[in-house]
Design a protein around this nucleic acid. Sequence first.
DNA 1: CTTGTCTAGTTCTATATAGAACTTAAGAAG
DNA 2: CTTCTTAAGTTCTATATAGAACTAGACAAG
Lengths: 248, 248
Amino acid sequence: MSQMSIAALQGDQRLPLYQRLADVLRAEILCGDRRPGDRLPSENVLARDYGIAPGTTRKALAELVEDGILERLQGRGTFVRRPSFDRSLFRFFRLRTKSGADVIPDSQIRSRTVRRMPSEIARKLAQPDACDGIRMVRMRLIDGVPILHEEIWLPLTPFAAFMELDLTEVGPLLYPIYDTCCDQIVARADELLTVDQAKGQPARLLELEAGAPLVCIERLACSLDGTPIEWRRSRGAAEHFQYQIEIR
Amino acid sequence: MSQMSIAALQGDQRLPLYQRLADVLRAEILCGDRRPGDRLPSENVLARDYGIAPGTTRKALAELVEDGILERLQGRGTFVRRPSFDRSLFRFFRLRTKSGADVIPDSQIRSRTVRRMPSEIARKLAQPDACDGIRMVRMRLIDGVPILHEEIWLPLTPFAAFMELDLTEVGPLLYPIYDTCCDQIVARADELLTVDQAKGQPARLLELEAGAPLVCIERLACSLDGTPIEWRRSRGAAEHFQYQIEIR
DNA sequence: CTTGTCTAGTTCTATATAGAACTTAAGAAG
DNA sequence: CTTCTTAAGTTCTATATAGAACTAGACAAG
């Protein structure tokens, strides 16, 4: 009756069982089959379903917890983790004047257009050359003072729905909106920090003289499966910023 | 005969066994009782010695591997990990012109003196106010071109032997020397990156005009047990640098 | 309505055991 | 001397099992 089918674990037979199970579950999560917040079957149920020992399923789940894509709560269950990420990106930024208060700056989207993507940005977003994309210019302010000038590019393919959005309803955090509106979850990012000189539109909007030192942070944000999702370049007056990090 | 004594696991009895064993082993490593490269007893021997099951020792060891202070090699044994760290600090730095080649710049120590420590630095090194310390000024060059100006402070207490060292024998990496000469191992560091303007000695040694944008990186390096060991401030022409990092 | 008790379900800890996979060194065979 | 075999010791995988610790909900008592 309830015997159903024992799902034989696919994949390279040379790999250990727990590894193959972890791969299966990871794939189910990455492809969106299991969504953040979903609850997984208990370790005993998984063991029964796949015909392996409970200790083996336990080891597979532990690996995914270590990866940060699962969360286990004693007595409650095992859940797909919701990557709360926008916060952690601001972990490194600090305003020099303020003490380490976790302030997320206000946001003003100045423009949102579809236009030809510069080839270098298209390349980084893994898009074909000379294709269109969504471009935004956004200012970030604290107490009304412009702090950051951001240029943001999104590929059209998963983000078409973003163009329909009412911008007045967009808060200071974009990544939750990518999730709800376009089903895209930002899981990690690469940042590259350089120092530039102010000029052109950024200098004007930041109310800086041309030639003033400018911190420039290029970020490439990627989804859970590593696909590049968003490219952005943030610039701000150098004297306002510090970038803090722990190395080990 | 070889029964010897079963070492009862100390510590908070409410904590699980594997946790207490992990704490014991971690403490033995942090206090220098077990040195990097040392081999630990096998999981079966540990189990016998502490009177617990092999699976429990295994879980304790796994935690320390996760921490990065142990390394296990199948068929060989379990070893205290040697923190190869100087390399990883340069992981983030890249010269803008060169491609991502892993070049460690040459080193020229310009001065090494014992003098009164500035109070702010003494505070960060957890030293009493108005005490003496070792101060070094070091230039770092690539192809003979000065790239970085470094000011380095060491507390006298563990680093007295460093003053006896022949500077001509000091290579580009200081941390291995701290280890061999003063028994101090750098395990982690906090870095704070800001942008400054060139002036004074750094500007002169870097051959920059006053007011040129300068990247300034303050680093506080700590030993395995978290004690601050070294403070340094590195400055370099902003246009030469980029700082790369992955966030997740 | 509030409080306490019980129960089923979950993860966590701990034990015991067997064999696979790998490393190293010693010794045999050529 | 070189190469192969063997053996001991190690970590790694996998199974099986029992109970502790915790959660959430149902139900009873007050």
